[in-house]
Design a protein around this nucleic acid. Structure first.
Lengths: 113, 113
DNA sequence: TCGGTATATGCATTTTCCTGCATATAGTCT
DNA sequence: AGACTATATGCAGGAAAATGCATATACCGA
């Protein structure tokens, strides 16, 4: 019985069938990213971003690394990565954000991640 | 702006993130199938199956062909087919159902579709 | 230890989806 | 035309998801 297989797959697709989560995942596949970065890109309040990150984290498709005040997120599921490639095409370039002052957006190259 | 691309993709994943619809799609990629067949495989009431078929039809991922009393459904979207392959692996064999008397399940080979 | 910043959590409300059921339509056969 | 079968549609109650907001936690520097 691959009842289980269907169930897993539905779970995976549920994560992807949400505009904000899909865009978060698309950002993450371009490289490790901190929360404030996503906040800037998606233009949504921080608690909202964190909520969606939690959903993704609990589902096991992303992982995080804490460094000082910042938390850096990345994809941690190959299947997810393949689905993103299949549906959205190859990953684009990471955005560099003028208004964001976190290490990963730092204009100052020397402090870049 | 590929805002539109994200939106389309979310729609596509929404269709797939539902246990019954996912299984219907998995059946359809094994070959053309009538409603009573799906009813048997999924063990759900007929109006319910038809509702889900409508969702898929209106989204444009399946097409139908009417022949007498029967309506035969099939996949009509390559992208969908690729996502199914990616997520569920290669399509299995079509089921032949002992209790179903529609042309596509007919035990009597001569009447087979 | 205190103030400030980055991120997380809890909760409540709105909205959207799921699903069951009654009924409608369309085609076939006599 | 009337009975029967396969499929479609409409609607409603309940469940679950989405989202906004208040607040909590964790870490840093002074």
């Amino acid at each position: 019985m691959n009842e289980e297989r269907y169930h897993q797959t539905v779970q995976l697709f549920s994560l992807l069938s949400h505009p904000v989560r899909l865009r978060i995942l698309d950002e993450l596949r371009r490289g490790e990213t901190c929360v404030c970065h996503l906040q800037e890109v998606l233009r949504r309040p921080q608690p909202y971003i964190s909520q969606q990150l939690r959903v993704l984290r609990e589902a096991g498709v992303i992982a995080s690394r804490k460094q000082g005040l910042y938390v850096y997120y990345r994809l941690s599921d190959e299947r997810m990565e393949r689905m993103l490639e299949e549906s959205l095409g190859p990953a684009g370039e990471a955005h560099s954000l003028p208004h964001c002052s976190c290490p990963c957006c730092r204009n100052d190259e020397s402090l870049r991640l």
